[in-house]
Amino acid sequence: MVPEGSRMSLSPDLGGRNTARAHLAAAAYMEVAQKHGLDPVHMALAWCAGRPFMASVIFGATTAAQLAHIIEGKDIELSDQVLADLNKAHRAHPMPY
């Protein structure tokens, strides 16, 4: 189900990024989050913040509740095992769209 007002409800093909390959990649990353008891939003933002080339992490929050949820994960640090699992998922699903 696509939430009303979400990007996909407004642009169903997401600029060509709504593909079967992208859904498989997303499922792989969701499995990593679930395996390690992490919120997938917090995991993704922590991964971005941990990249040596990243100057800042930009996120989209449409509602105050979304912003509050994002802020809850601001201090998350990913373990070496989580990073290894993320790298494995990335190797299995490079450039998914």
Rank of each mutant, 00 (worst) to 15 (best):
R17H: 14
A68R: 08
R91M: 08
G15D: 08
N87L: 15
I76Q: 11
N87V: 12
T62V: 03
T19K: 13
I71K: 05
A61T: 08
I71Q: 05
A84K: 09
R91N: 13
V57F: 03
S11H: 14
L10T: 12
M1S: 12
G37H: 14
P3H: 05
D75N: 15
M54C: 12
W47F: 15
D80N: 08
P12V: 09
E72Q: 14
R51N: 00
Q66T: 06
I58L: 15
M1G: 13
A20W: 05
M1W: 11
A84D: 03
F53I: 10
S9L: 02
A46D: 05
C48Q: 03
L45V: 07
K88Y: 12
A64F: 12
E4M: 05
A92Q: 15
L78R: 01
K74H: 14
A33F: 03
A61G: 14
H93Y: 07
N18L: 10
L14E: 09
S11I: 13
A92M: 10
M43Y: 07
S9F: 00
D85H: 06
T62S: 14
A92Y: 07
H42V: 02
A46F: 09
M43C: 00
D85E: 10
T62Y: 13
T19V: 10
A84L: 05
L86Q: 00
F59W: 03
H90I: 06
L24A: 15
E72I: 04
M54K: 01
R51H: 10
E72F: 02
F53T: 08
A28R: 01
F53D: 13
T62R: 15
H90N: 07
A46N: 05
R17S: 14
L83R: 05
P12Y: 09
T62H: 13
G16L: 08
Q81Y: 04
A89S: 02
E72C: 12
F59T: 11
L78C: 00
T63F: 11
G16H: 09
S79F: 00
M1D: 12
N87Q: 15
A55N: 07
R51M: 01
A28E: 00
V41Y: 01
G60N: 08
P3C: 07
V2A: 10
V57K: 00
A25Y: 02
A25L: 05
I76K: 01
P12I: 11
M43H: 05
Y29K: 00
K74T: 02
N87S: 15
K88V: 10
S11E: 15
P96Y: 09
H42L: 02
S11K: 14
C48G: 00
L45H: 09
G15A: 11
P52Q: 01
Q34S: 11
P40R: 05
Q34I: 04
M30V: 08
H36N: 06
S79H: 04
R17W: 11
E31N: 03
H42I: 03
A61L: 02
L38W: 09
G73H: 08
M8G: 09
Q66Y: 06
K74P: 07
A27M: 02
P52E: 09
M8K: 12
A44K: 01
H69L: 10
S6W: 04
G60W: 09
H42A: 13
S6K: 04
M30C: 01
C48I: 01
H90L: 07
W47L: 09
L67M: 15
M95K: 13
Y29D: 01
G50P: 01
H36Y: 07
A20M: 11
K35W: 02
